[in-house]
């Protein structure tokens, strides 16, 4: 069905992007595993390692690996910019039609990369790894469980491990979701909303030394991410639909209170200057009007940049 694309010579079908940070010892073994795995398949591949500002000589190891194999690209960030940025740097330097994101942090068995790829071949656009069984700390698992539950509740997806750090996706997906290329935990959620087919695939988590501190430390940030993704995916082009709604409610309550106090005073029932309710009424009025004004400002921003807005995702154009 799909037209065959003319490939540039040297471009690959699959790009495996591995984010590495301070993994000097584990790197050689991981590379061997990935290389044998990918070489056993028929697909043309490239293996991209991104060193996220390691301080333990990981880059030296990467440079050595790169010398041994022409399929390997090594990228070094100037300092540590975080996993998502590292993967994004890899994405921007990749050429494959299918991308596999693999983070060393979560310590997943690299053999599962091939399963992710076969799911893509079955026609799915995004394949999310789900760590089963999980070998990280109980606290991590609990937080992750709650987080995934919340994401599913809000976004009507059926995912169990959006943050597994292992994911395969077609290039077109990564190019049409708003957070360009980075491994955002909400990528599957937003991709599904755009009409892409997503699926979960169990991956085995290995025991051993891995960095457990990253997840719990960041989970307030994750919550804020969730709120902003929700807001952005629903209201990013219509800020006033949300801010206006909240603002109008505030304004109405504030107006009702003020009116009540006005009548109270006008009928001479008593003084209102001692009443904190007056302050509440005025405060609500002002907050409400401010929300509406800020919503309108948002609308101005959207309108002045409307040329670059595209709210749809075309699957196919016939004729």
């Amino acid at each position: 069905m799909t037209p065959t694309k003319v490939k540039k010579s040297g471009s690959s079908e699959v790009s495996v992007i591995v984010a590495v940070q301070n993994q000097k010892e584990a790197l050689a073994a991981l590379h061997d595993q990935l290389l044998t795995l990918l070489q056993s398949g028929s697909r043309r591949f490239e293996l991209i390692y991104v060193d996220d500002g390691s301080s333990d000589g990981t880059w030296g190891e990467l440079a050595r690996i790169q010398q041994t194999c022409s399929r390997v690209k090594a990228i070094r960030l100037r300092s540590s910019f975080g996993e998502a940025s590292a993967l994004d740097a890899g994405f921007r330097n990749s050429s494959g039609e299918v991308l596999v994101y693999f983070t060393c942090r979560v310590h997943v068995n690299p053999l599962h990369v091939i399963q992710l790829l076969s799911r893509i071949e079955q026609g799915y656009d995004v394949v999310v790894g789900r760590r089963t069984p999980r070998r990280d700390s109980r606290l991590n698992q609990l937080v992750s469980h709650l987080f995934n539950g919340l994401v599913n509740r809000i976004s009507k997806t059926q995912l169990h491990d959006v943050n597994s750090g292992v994911l395969a996706a077609r290039r077109v997906v990564l190019e049409s979701v708003p957070f360009y290329g980075s491994l955002n935990p909400f990528l599957p959620v937003v991709a599904q909303r755009q009409g892409f087919k997503i699926v979960e695939e169990p991956v085995e988590q290995l025991t051993g030394r891995f960095n457990q501190s990253i997840y719990p430390k960041n989970y307030i940030k994750r919550m804020l991410d969730l709120i902003s993704v929700l807001f952005l995916s629903r209201y990013s082009k219509k800020p006033l639909h949300f801010l206006g709604f909240v603002g109008v409610i505030f304004t109405l309550i504030g107006a009702a209170i003020s009116l009540y106090l006005f009548i109270y005073r006008a009928l001479g029932i008593g003084g209102i200057s001692g009443k904190p309710m007056l302050l509440l009424g005025v405060l609500l009025l002002i907050i409400g009007i401010q929300m509406i004004s800020i919503g309108l400002l948002g609308e101005i921003i959207i309108f002045t940049h409307a040329d670059s807005i595209k709210e749809y995702n075309i699957e196919e154009i016939l004729n």
Binding site: K310, E311, Y312, I314, L318
Partner: peptide, 24 residues
Amino acid sequence: AARCPMLRVILFRANFGQSAAMAA
């Protein structure tokens, strides 16, 4: 579309609303 060359058809991946459809 297969039999009418004057007809161009744009297929969206999901439902994006009437404004998006008209914009496209």
